[in-house]
Write a protein that binds this DNA or RNA. Structure first.
Length: 453
RNA sequence: GGCCCGGUGGCAGAGUGGUUAUGCAGCGGUUUGCAAAACCGUGUACAUCGGUUCAAUUCCGGUCCGGGCCUCCA
């Protein structure tokens, strides 16, 4: 498998450290609110990555953390007038609902930051002992200058960063680029006892500590969004490598591009977000998943109604072609798999699915099985074709004017009676009325079938 | 200011040093009572200017335009 490695800015063939056990870490959500479609992209994309890896290797451990200690959580809990614990538990539950709706399989381990405070304290102590960190004014800071190749991932030098600094430097820092490992908490803030007093961890240390705990000092793949390259992943590398005396934290660093709205990054600070909850109620969840896979994961993906409509039409065609074919793990199409093995080229893989669909539509049952089996690797076409066709949550039209299935069957019976009587005007009137209600009829050899548009 | 990444046909979106991506939309046909679906056919697309080359959308350089990171952010 070929993967684009941010560390080398090149596509490289993937060689696991231990071929009998591939280890992957992805940065998960900070749980203070529902995730939006931009947050969902790495969930879905790296879900496909792990599915492909599981197919290629006997054992894969996929870790995706949950950040449940963060000042944004504290603020949100205060705003909502609820406890931090309640806010986190509530948000985690909705996160699980959202990821399940998108068809993402749960990770093997989903560690919570607050359950790994001891590991963080141990790692911070180690960094102090090794001279990479210092205590100042109740804080513990990582001294960036003690690391030789800091900036290797983001291709950024310390000088560049100082030149571009847009933040005021906290007075207790020895250097502007130093970052916080531990900070003091006032009584009303969450905190844990530590050698440096009661406090809480900085942003980056949790990932270093949890990755070490579950995947070891060096593992295969670390994944996340493009905006995490700097400073988050850079600082994770600094912490982990300096604590463990290793040259690398992970061998491959994968970063997904952004979801945009009108070509602008979807972000909470810009306020142009659509939550997964909103998206999956306006469109079928599988359509949202397909849309997220319709562009290459490193390219920007602009979301609009037409993106969703395209994804819907595309799935419609694939579902019809797949028919009632059964999924079989050993019938995945080779060309399709080759597309995914080429740096997760999902648009090319989808194109191959359409080629299989054309063959299947020419009554090639082998192609139909390959289509359904291959699509399953993308987490698509998992429903029965009939369930999809008649499913609710269409792209256009609300449920208010929706007809129920028995009413539709009655209309179809009436229309077929008219057709038998060769009263085509009446038959067509019934069909047009159904079409207005979003019901498309198809007269086939086995009678009339219908689907929701 | 520093550092990254892009600009492909009506739209979305792959890919390639010389030959069909794919889907949607459009057009023509087959089929159908008419449709729908399906199948077949159909498009002088690769920001711009130079360079390398027998040959560049594809490699190199400049220009223009767009996006991102440098602050929480997938």
């Amino acid at each position: 498998m070929q993967l684009y490695n941010t560390l080398t800015r090149q596509k490289q063939s993937f060689a696991p450290i231990d071929p009998s056990h591939v280890r992957v870490y992805a940065c998960g959500p900070t749980v203070y609110g529902r995730i939006h479609v931009g947050n969902a992209r790495p969930i879905v994309v790296f879900d496909v990555l792990v599915r492909v890896l599981r197919r290629l290797y006997d054992r894969v451990t996929y870790v995706r953390n949950i950040t449940d200690v963060d000042d944004k959580i504290n603020e949100r809990a205060a705003t909502n007038g609820q406890s931090i614990t309640d806010l986190c538990n509530e948000t985690i539950a909705s996160f699980h609902a959202d990821t399940a709706a998108l068809g993402a399989e749960p990770p093997d381990v989903e560690p919570r930051a607050t359950h790994h405070i001891d590991e963080m304290i141990a790692m911070i102590s180690l960094l102090i002992d090794k001279g990479h960190a210092y205590v100042a004014d109740g804080h513990v800071l990582f001294q960036v200058s003690t690391m030789d190749n800091y900036g290797a991932l983001s291709k950024r030098s310390i000088d560049d960063m100082i030149a571009g600094a847009r933040v005021e430097v906290a007075p207790y820092k020895r250097a502007a680029e130093d970052f916080v490992l531990w900070k003091p908490s006032v009584p009303e803030q969450p905190g844990w006892d530590s050698p440096w007093g009661r406090g809480r961890p900085g942003w980056h240390i949790e990932c270093s500590a949890m990755a070490k705990t579950y995947l070891g000092e060096l593992f295969d793949i670390h994944a996340g969004g493009l905006d995490l390259i700097f400073p988050h992943h850079e600082n994770e590398i600094a912490q982990s490598c300096c604590a463990h005396g290793t040259s690398h934290m992970a061998n491959y660093w994968l970063h997904n591009g952004f979801v945009t709205m009108n070509d602008e990054k979807m972000s909470k600070s810009l306020g142009n977000i659509i939550t997964v909850e909103e998206a999956t109620s306006r469109y079928r969840p599988e359509v949202v998943r397909a849309a997220l896979l319709s562009a290459h994961y490193r390219a920007p993906l602009d979301l609009s109604d037409s993106t969703m409509q395209d994804a819907h039409n595309s799935l419609d065609r694939l579902y019809r072609a797949a028919g009632t074919a059964e999924i079989s793990d050993d019938r995945v199409d080779d060309e399709f798999l080759a597309c995914l093995c080429d740096d997760l080229n999902t648009p090319a893989a989808l194109a191959r699915l359409h080629e299989l669909a054309r063959l299947a539509n020419k009554r090639d049952q082998v192609a139909a099985i390959a289509l359904k089996s291959s699509a399953a690797l993308l987490g698509l076409l998992r429903q029965e074709g009939d369930v999809w066709a008649k499913g609710a949550g269409s792209v256009s039209g609300g449920d208010d004017k929706r007809l129920d299935d028995t009413a539709i069957d009655a209309e179809i019976a009436a229309r077929n009676a008219a057709r038998t009587a060769r009263d085509f005007a009446k038959a067509d009137a019934i069909r047009d009325a159904l079409a207005d209600a979003g019901i498309i009829l198809e007269d086939g050899q086995d009678g009339t079938s219908w689907r929701r548009s």
